[in-house]
Design a protein around this nucleic acid. Sequence first.
DNA 1: TGCGTTGTCGCAACCGAGTTGCGTTAATTT
DNA 2: AAATTAACGCAACTCGGTTGCGACAACGCA
Lengths: 126, 126
Amino acid sequence: MGVLRKTKHLEHVLQAFRQSSDALSAGMLLDALANEINKSTVYRMLQKLEDDGVIHSFLTMDQIRFYALCKGCSSGRHVDTHAHFQCTSCKRVSCVSEEIVLPTPGRSRITSAQVLLTGQCESCLS
Amino acid sequence: MGVLRKTKHLEHVLQAFRQSSDALSAGMLLDALANEINKSTVYRMLQKLEDDGVIHSFLTMDQIRFYALCKGCSSGRHVDTHAHFQCTSCKRVSCVSEEIVLPTPGRSRITSAQVLLTGQCESCLS
DNA sequence: TGCGTTGTCGCAACCGAGTTGCGTTAATTT
DNA sequence: AAATTAACGCAACTCGGTTGCGACAACGCA
Ligand SMILES: [Mn+2]
Ligand SMILES: [Mn+2]
Ligand SMILES: [Zn+2]
Ligand SMILES: [Zn+2]
C-alpha cells in the first residue's frame, strides 16, 4: 500500500485541515492553494489520506464529498463515526460530536451509517 | 408550476414504484423501461414527482440518487422523513420505518436530516 | 555526497450522473 | 376541432471525480 512521503503539497493540505474547524471539499482545497497544486494530485492525496486513517469523508446534499481530520483512526480502520452538519445559509460543513442511537431495520446487520443534518448554524441564526 | 398530465410514461414509472418494495434510481428506471423512454424525460419526471410530494429522494454512498413513494406528503411539504438502508451485497436500497433520535449540535437549528445505513440485508445474511 | 528505487506530480483525456435549450408531439381545455 | 401548454426526444453540455503516462523528487542506502 506504500509509504506516505512528506512532500510540500501534503504539508499544505494537512495545514489547511488543522487551521480549519470546518470540513473541506476538494474544490475548496484547490481554491485555497490556487494553481499551486493540480486537481488529480488533490484527489489522489485525499484518497490516500482517507485510506491511511488520517481523514474521513462524507457527502453533502449537493453530492459533494467533504473531508475532515480523524481522531483515533488508523489504516483501514475508521472508528470515529459521527454525524455531520451543513448550514443552509453559509454552506459551511462541520463534524457533530454528539453520539447517535441507530435502529436495526428488520433482521439486517448495520455496519455503518452516514448522518447529514442541515439547518442554520449558531452564527447564522443571530 | 403546471398541471400533472396523465401520460403513458408517467403510468409506467408510477407502476414501477408500486411494484417495487425497494427504492429506485433513474438508471434503474431507464433499464427497466429500456429504450422506451428518454434519459431527460425520466429525470424531469422524477423531479416533478418529488416537487409534487409523490416521491422523495436521497443519496447513497456511491453518490447516486434513489427515489421511493411518499406516504402523506403533498406539494412542497414533505413530512415522511425516515432513514434509508443499502445492502452492501445485493446493493438494494429501501426505506426504514423506525424513528431515529437526532442530536442538535450546539445552538443551531436543524431543519432536515438524511440518514443512510449500510450493511447486509436479511436475505443476504442467510 | 551520489545513485537507484518508487511514490508523487502535472497534464490531458476521460467518465458518468444529471442538466439544459430547443423544436416537436400530444394531453387537456375551450 | 382548434388553441393552449405540458411533456417529449435529441444533442450538447456541466461538473465532480478518475485514469494512463511520462517526468520528477523524496527517501534509503552506499
Ligand atoms: Mn466528521
Ligand atoms: Mn424513503
Ligand atoms: Zn451558517
Ligand atoms: Zn442484500
